[in-house]
Design a protein around this nucleic acid. Structure first.
Length: 291
DNA sequence: TTGTGTTTTATTGCCTCC
DNA sequence: GGAGGCAATAAAACACAA
């Protein structure tokens, strides 16, 4: 509420009261009292009647629809107000330049708020779409992880049933591991360098398994190094298996060590690929959103 | 009619630019 | 230093449900 000193002339009220002096169109407005707002008329009445010598209160009044429409159109063209345009608009609409400036200022503030809301909506839609996408991939990842777990468990059960203690191996790896396991037992009684190989050969003939089948697969897995002992080139997770090669190293030169490093490398590769694939869509890792 | 929430008009204080 | 812009705020005007 603007406090208006009584010492000011009535004409200066025009700077504070938009419809003062009233325009022709407003004189027909039934809401107003003969063109003035009710409040303004009341104020004028009190101005006439009271003689308190103090200050009177001038209430603000809303702009007419015509004025607002014109201001809106002008704002659409350019939301900043140059001094010339301000004066021109004010003259056209019967307003004070300051009122026009204030209207533009408030209008810019409203526009900014709306713009923020629009930006927020767009960002939220983007985020929702990304989250939906991420959730789908996450579910897929979990399903695959469960599937992998089941397969591993099944493999372990199969191994346990066959009395072998090799985990997480493909059938061929399990076969090769079992050879190593048995050759270790034999190695305790037979210190020959080729004990494992002999046993492997014996086992192969005993099992009656197809040489070409296993060899083919092993060649694929071991990259053609199968000839040394026939059990390299696959991932072994058993520490006992690793430990077993160390004493054998002392007896048979560097052969065992060589195999161990190869096992290690292959195991690292195997582990890495498994973990990598599992962590690629890790649940713990939030999706990085680039806006 | 009245209480309440929203919109509009206007002020104030601070900041930047010329 | 003055003009103008902006954020925060006040307060009148308005809309509307109870």
């Amino acid at each position: 509420m603007k406090r208006f000193s009584r010492s000011d002339s009535l004409d200066s009220l025009g700077t504070l009261i938009p419809n003062y002096p009233p325009k022709e169109e407003d004189k027909h407005n039934k809401k107003n009292n003969g063109g003035y707002s009710k409040e303004f008329q009341t104020m004028l009445d009190s101005y006439d009647q009271e003689d308190c010598g103090e200050e009177i209160l001038v209430k603000k009044r809303r702009l007419s629809s015509h004025q607002v429409k014109a201001l809106e159109m002008s704002f659409e063209v350019e939301n900043k107000l140059e001094p010339e345009r301000k004066v021109k608009l004010a003259a056209e609409l019967g307003l004070e330049p300051r009122q026009v400036a204030i209207w533009f200022q408030n209008r810019r503030a409203r526009w900014k708020t709306k713009q923020l809301e629009r930006d927020y909506s767009v960002l939220k839609a983007d985020y929702d779409a990304l989250k939906h996408n991420y959730d789908g991939l996450d579910r897929q990842n979990k399903a695959l992880a469960d599937q992998l777990k089941d397969l591993k468990a099944k493999l372990c059960r199969d191994n346990a049933e066959s009395g072998q203690s090799v985990k997480e191996e493909s059938p061929i790896s399990v076969y090769k591991s079992s050879v190593v396991e048995q050759s270790r037992d034999q190695d305790l009684s037979d210190n020959g360098d080729n004990a494992g190989l002999d046993l492997y050969k014996n086992l192969k003939s005993k099992d009656g398994s197809s040489d070409s089948d296993s060899n083919g697969a092993m060649k694929e897995e071991s990259n053609g190094n199968e000839s040394s002992l026939g059990y390299n080139g696959h991932s072994l997770s058993s520490n006992s298996m690793m430990n077993w090669f160390q004493p054998s190293d002392s007896r048979s030169g560097n052969k065992g060590y060589h195999h161990q490093t190869q096992f290690g490398r292959m195991e690292e590769q195997s582990l890495f690929s498994t973990e990598e694939s599992c962590n690629f869509f890790s649940v713990d890792q939030a999706p990085s959103l680039h806006w």
